[in-house]
């Protein structure tokens, strides 16, 4: 009898802040001026939507990959530390994580600008005579997003790695496996649930990125979230905006479903044991 009661606050929150807006978005999306299918028709015919959607998927994928590649060794290192020192390293990862996304994004524009830190350094070092363009490039968007999401990758991976039975790697080494072989055949497979969970989180978070691509990428690197903003504020077409929001949600659900199919649930949340 108590259990449902305990879930009530969360369910209420979910109902108010997710179900109600979701139903409203469904309503707007299917009841525009142009009839029930106006939103869907726009999605199919718009020259912008397909391009931006594809770009958003590509961006989310590449940011996810880069975060995993950079985060994995860092997580290995942190997980391998004794308990006393691990806390210090985790704090170093968490510190930027707790800093506002807006602040971190804006700071990048100071670094990457034409007269910013990076260009000043390159000119001072004699690597270039002319300031190079870094702002509003794919590089800027990637730098900003990777820096923001990297702690998510590291924390998720460390969580799984500290749960591992280190004895198994030792056993492989004792039985004659080279360090590389022990890593490749023992350690890496054991961390797979962590990699998949991190990839899922990173991909979903990247899909909805708004402020970083807007500030560092500009309109030439719009994501779906930016395009929704443009629809709402410039084109006044909320039907199209809602339709795009639904596509974004469906993509997220599809990504989650795919990953759960790749890795059974108990492995996702229960560590590797």
């Amino acid at each position: 009898m108590v259990a449902p009661l305990l879930a009530a606050p969360l369910l209420l929150l979910f109902a108010i802040f997710f179900v109600v807006p979701f139903v409203e978005i469904m309503r707007i999306s299917f009841s525009g001026k142009g009839g029930a299918w106006a939103g869907a028709t726009w999605l199919m015919s718009s020259p912008v939507f397909a391009l931006v959607f594809l770009n958003t998927l590509k961006l989310a994928l590449s940011v996810t990959l880069i975060c995993l590649i950079l985060g994995y060794p860092a997580a290995c290192f942190i997980a391998g530390q004794p308990d006393s020192r691990r806390g210090v390293y985790l704090a170093l990862v968490l510190l930027p994580f707790w800093t506002s996304v807006l602040v971190r994004t804006y700071t990048w524009s100071l670094v990457l600008g034409r007269e910013g830190l990076l260009n000043a350094s390159l000119i001072w070092l004699g690597i270039t005579n002319e300031p190079q363009r870094f702002m509003f490039t794919p590089l800027a968007v990637h730098l900003g997003m990777v820096q923001i999401l990297l702690p998510v990758a590291i924390l998720t991976l460390v969580g799984v790695m500290t749960e591992l039975d280190a004895g198994l790697v030792r056993a492989a080494r004792v039985l004659g496996a080279s360090p590389w072989r022990a890593f490749w055949h023992v350690y890496l497979p054991m961390t797979k649930p962590g990699i998949v969970a991190a990839a899922m989180l990173l991909f979903i978070l990247s899909l909805g990125f708004y402020i970083t691509p807007a500030l560092l990428g500009g309109p030439r690197h719009r994501t779906i979230a930016n395009l929704i903003d443009l629809q709402v504020h410039q084109m006044n077409d909320w039907t199209a905006a809602s339709a795009m929001a639904l596509v974004l949600l469906a993509t997220t659900i599809a990504a989650v479903a795919l990953l759960r199919w790749l890795v059974p649930e108990r492995n996702l949340y229960g560590g590797a044991r």
């Binding site: 912008v48 719009r222 443009l230 084109m235 006044n236």
Partner: peptide, 12 residues
């Protein structure tokens, strides 16, 4: 609305 959409596509 129409020209803004074309503009957004042109920028991409």
């Amino acid at each position: 609305p129409k020209l803004t959409e074309r503009w957004a596509a042109w920028l991409l």
